[in-house]
Design a protein around this nucleic acid. Structure first.
Lengths: 197, 197
DNA sequence: GACAGATGTCAATGCGCGTTGACTTGGCCG
DNA sequence: CGGCCAAGTCAACGCGCATTGACATCTGTC
């Protein structure tokens, strides 16, 4: 598999501890699946990254699919949306989108993981439900909408779109295009967050 | 592989014709790759869909990767952007996004194909270049921007985002949420297409 | 300190894959 | 009509994979 640019083992040499081993495998799976996708990631890769044995994975997770779904669930954790400053949100996001996608950033890995899942017909429904519960609902609360969640939907969609664009763009934007891009993205986001402003 | 909901063979029984066979394989590959992705699609699947033999694929396309890159190139064709009515564009797109993704629609398949390519580190750069040439440039022309292409970038990103959202949403929106969604999406798109309005 | 169950190791199995090469069939041209 | 080359078929190979079950080792408990 591709280089993960990480220490050979995710964890320090540990004593016999099923829970810790399970956790190490799960963490390794989250990283590996995010970078390489479901199919290109072998259980041998994950085991090597976790510093454990391949045979433990079917035992602890019931198989590759079980590991994937559990890694998916663990990845879509309730976001720390409350931490975001509402005044700076749009501009911060815009600046982030103007940059390059950094594979070392855990959030990039998370997003790639989710995108991988979105393209597979089998995992897409599962992802849909998870996104609904753990992504859309928090955004709606954050926005303070009572009536519907269409605004959260729109915001999430736009956010995702810029992430994809950044992913396939590869490099960061520079110069005039960057500033113009940031301004426009800020305006777009602001228009959704504060429609009347 | 998953059901493609298509006739067993893409083409009528044809006589010995290398060009036609090649074309049938390529068409089958475009469909199969879009639905199942690179890894989950086997050459045997494609051959069966095209009504030909597996062994012909390495011969005609030099291998699976060759077939994929050729299918990718054939998929990113210059879009018929000029046909779109600029006044109705935003609302048409918004209505489309409020509906459900239809796998029978060739455009849905195309998009899924591209998204698949975007998530693979190896194919992402290739996709980026292709998108730049055959997607961003036409949009910029359509928008009539002289200075930069940041507006085309933003529009493309938002468009992609809604496509992804629709993909993972699965079902169509209904009732109040639908109308609210359509209105808001229309407004967002209009804000990018005609910033001063 | 010894037992027992939990934990980790290892080799082996079966399967599906892409690819290869030898073979057969078909159609065009003389 | 007959030969010849393109086009298509078929069987087989090697490889990597997930999974299994038998075996070894550690660790907490009495």
């Amino acid at each position: 598999m591709t280089d993960l640019a990480e220490p050979a083992h995710l964890v320090a040499p540990r004593r016999r501890d099923a829970a810790a081993t399970r956790a190490a495998i799960l963490e390794a799976a989250k990283r590996a699946f995010a970078v390489t996708g479901y199919d290109r990631t072998s259980l041998r890769d994950i085991a090597a990254l976790a510093g454990s044995d391949v045979a433990l994975i079917p035992r602890y997770f019931g198989g590759k699919e079980g590991l994937f779904t559990e890694a998916l669930k663990a990845t879509i954790a309730p976001d720390r949306l409350r931490d975001w400053d509402r005044r700076r949100f749009s501009r911060d996001v815009a600046e982030m989108m103007a940059g390059a996608a950094d594979i070392a950033d855990p959030r990039t890995r998370t997003f790639q993981f989710l995108l991988q899942a979105a393209t597979s017909p089998t995992t897409a429904p599962l992802l849909g439900r998870a996104v609904q519960e753990r992504f859309l609902a928090p955004i709606r609360d954050w926005l303070g909408d009572e009536a519907g969640q269409e605004r959260a939907r729109v915001l999430a969609a736009i956010y995702i779109g810029f992430l994809v664009e950044r992913l396939i763009r590869g490099a960061a934007l520079e110069g005039v295009e960057r500033t113009a891009f940031v301004d426009r993205v800020t305006a777009v986001l602001e228009g959704v967050i504060d429609p009347q402003a």
